[in-house]
Amino acid sequence: MRRYIGRRVLLYFPTLLLASMAIFAIMRVLPGDVTQVILGGDQTTPRALAQAEDLRQRLGLNDNIVIQYFRWVWSMINGEFGGASIVSREPISEIIARRLPVTLELAAWTTLIAWAISIPSGVIAAMYQNRMPDYFVRIVTVAGTALPNFWIALMLILIMLIFFSWTPPIFYLDLWENPVQHMLKIIWAALILAWGYSSYLTRVTRSTMLEVLRQDYVRTARSRGLRERAVVLRHALPNAMIPVLTLGGLQLATLLSGTVILETVFSLPGIGQGVVQAATERDYPVIQSLVMLLVTLMLTLNVVIDIIYAKIDPRISYG
């Protein structure tokens, strides 16, 4: 077990390194020049060109690309997170400190709601295969996977406005400052993300449960006179959870990209909204640091899931 965790964590670092290279490289080949955004105006006069050149020099954009990369990586490690925003001059570490809790909270609510819904409904759908509860679950989950979440979000806002003359609060307030208003602002995005995420999880849970319920060891459990509840929850469910956990972990990537969209729609000041804002401003240090942060988050979650996975299935850490 310890060796398995060790190996899994060791793989984590090369993956991070590769991801950082990819992010850095992509930022360099994207069209658009940050100096134009900062300076504005007509960029074709000799004076403007000289100014732009001067600015590039100051921002360190003329240095060797490898040196720029290592400078950035080092700043990620020492806690500067790539320095400051080019546009607002706010240190990126402060941007992260301000925005990360919002995204983490949104993701936490989403995950919590999604898992709390999808495991029971997946199990119930499997137990009542091709009967009413199963049909209900299938219809809701097909809708959840098929409808784009930004569309649901816009419809939700419209419906609440037209039928209830109500909109979510305009300003984001801290959970401790005003819990009610805070929840009223964040819960919609969490619910919509949870619908999509849980739809996927529910369908996987249902199909793996159906498969597991046909296994020989389930028949063995039944042949020994165990209660159906014990058969389903103790004998079938843990086996069904193995693929659900893996796929659920992989699906977290989709969930994180979903936060980018929904944070923007519901104006939640999280990392996702920060990335979108930085992208429109060509604020490349902010983009690459925030994206790197999202990637790190994602990879860390996957390591955690792999460890949980080994806890459930004793065969994984074996050999």
Binding site: Q215, D216, Y217, R219, T220, A221, R222, S223, R224, G225, L226, R227, R234, H235, P238, N239, I242, I312, D313, P314, R315
Partner: peptide, 24 residues
């Protein structure tokens, strides 16, 4: 349920798959 295991016990053909892999 009360008959199974207590009145009539069963042993199956496939020992490789008849035991639950995740329970000791």
């Amino acid at each position: 349920r009360h008959i199974r295991g207590r009145a009539i016990g069963m042993i199956f053909q496939e020992p490789m798959t008849s035991l639950n892999p995740v329970l000791s």
